[in-house]
C-alpha cells in the first residue's frame, strides 16, 4: 500500500496527520505488516501528556509488543476506542480507521522534525 502524501512520518513507522492544532497518529501499513495480526491495543489516557518520542501506546500482535511513540509532544485529546474491540482495524486500515490517538500539539516546531512521504519512502528502501 502507498504511503499517503498528505501525512508526516517517523522513523519508527508512525504517521501523523495535522488537523489545526491537533495531530492524529497511527502506525504505517509497513508497520502493521511487520507486526502481523494485531490482537490488543493499549491506549493512552485522555489528557495524559507525552513528550515527543515518549511511548504513548502499545500494540500487541500475536507474537510481540510494539510501542507507539508520540511523534510530537502534547496532551492526548482523543483515543480510538474502536480499537478496544476491533484491534485488527490496524491491520485492515492502518492509515484510516486504524488511527490510534490524537494529541493537542504543544510545540508546532516539533512538526519540522517529522519525515515527508519521500523521506519515509527512502528510509524504507535503505533501511535504518
Amino acid at each position: 500500500m502507498e504511503n499517503p502524501k498528505d501525512l508526516k512520518y517517523t522513523k519508527d513507522h508512525e504517521w501523523v496527520r495535522v488537523e489545526g492544532n491537533k495531530a492524529v497518529i497511527g502506525v504505517t501499513d509497513v508497520a502493521q505488516s511487520l507486526m502481523g495480526d494485531v490482537v490488543f491495543v493499549e491506549l493512552p489516557e485522555i489528557d495524559a501528556e507525552f513528550a515527543a518520542g515518549e511511548a504513548a501506546a502499545n500494540i500487541e500482535s500475536v507474537k510481540a509488543v510494539s510501542e507507539v511513540f508520540a511523534p510530537v509532544g502534547g496532551k492526548i485529546a482523543e483515543v480510538n476506542t474502536a480499537l478496544e474491540d476491533t484491534p485488527e482495524l490496524i491491520n485492515k486500515d492502518a492509515f484510516g480507521e486504524g488511527w490510534i490517538f490524537t494529541v493537542e500539539i504543544s510545540d508546532s516546531a516539533e512538526l519540522d522534525n517529522l519525515l515527508t512521504v519521500e523521506e519515509y519512502g527512502k528510509l524504507l528502501v535503505e533501511g535504518e
Binding site: 502481523g36 495480526d37 490482537v39 500482535s61 500475536v62 507474537k63
Partner: peptide, 9 residues
C-alpha cells in the same frame, strides 16, 4: 518460517 499468511489464519 514464522508465518506465511498470518498466525491467526
Amino acid at each position: 518460517p514464522i508465518q506465511y499468511t498470518g498466525i491467526i489464519e
